[in-house]
Amino acid sequence: MKKFFVIALLAILGFYLTIAFLQIPFGQNRLGQPQDEATVGAYYLNNTKEKSAVSNVVTAIVVNYRGFDTLGEVTVLFLASTGLASILYRRKEEEVERINKPSSSLLQTGSKFLFPLVVLLGIYVFIHGHLTPGGGFQGGAIIATGFLLMLIAYQKYHVSHSMLTWVESLAGVLFVSIGLWGLITGGTFLENSYFPKGVLNSLISGGAIPIIYIAVGFKVAAELTGVLDILLNTKEEKSVPSNQNEK
């Protein structure tokens, strides 16, 4: 009964959504010519090359034009990891071994071999964030997967939480202080005018953008690793007797 009601509701919802989106022609150029700068997207496309000297326009938007959003976003990530830690809070004496069975030596060796490569890839991705696809978020996530490999493969492997905290805090401070420096020198938060622009499509280009993205990369890596570590270290529960379960 409830099922049919919900399906009917969703059918109506889908009908209206479809009608609404069929009015947006797929694949048509709605930007206008970049020279016209009729839309904000066209403005970014037209100006990024000269003003920021960054070849990846998405990076320029994420880090510079909408940099304040990114600050908020890493804050949300930080809050999520803090929230996770408080939701899954456990006293020290309750901690147990994470995984019952030890991993196979194949997994252990492979992880040991892959870990530096994965981390290196991650660092590569966020250092080249302004040149190629990818950047701080992607690189940070890749580094986190590297740590995840180690966490799964080795029972005893432990990420130092104080180290994570330090990395995250320093990265955050770096981000904010670059933004404030822009505020002091240029008049707006994250103003990108005081670092040398460099030449387009070279590693040292784009002013502060690579520095910020590296900071974001470290911060995201630390946060995601922290999240995974907290989730993994949760005690495996045998079913808790509860009066709601007695049927």
Binding site: K2, F5, V6, L9, L10, I12, L13, Y16
Partner: peptide, 16 residues
């Protein structure tokens, strides 16, 4: 959650 979605759908129908 169903109430919320039902409200949204009702609103859509009314507005449309």
């Amino acid at each position: 959650a169903i109430y919320v979605v039902a409200f949204l759908v009702t609103l859509l129908i009314v507005v449309q």
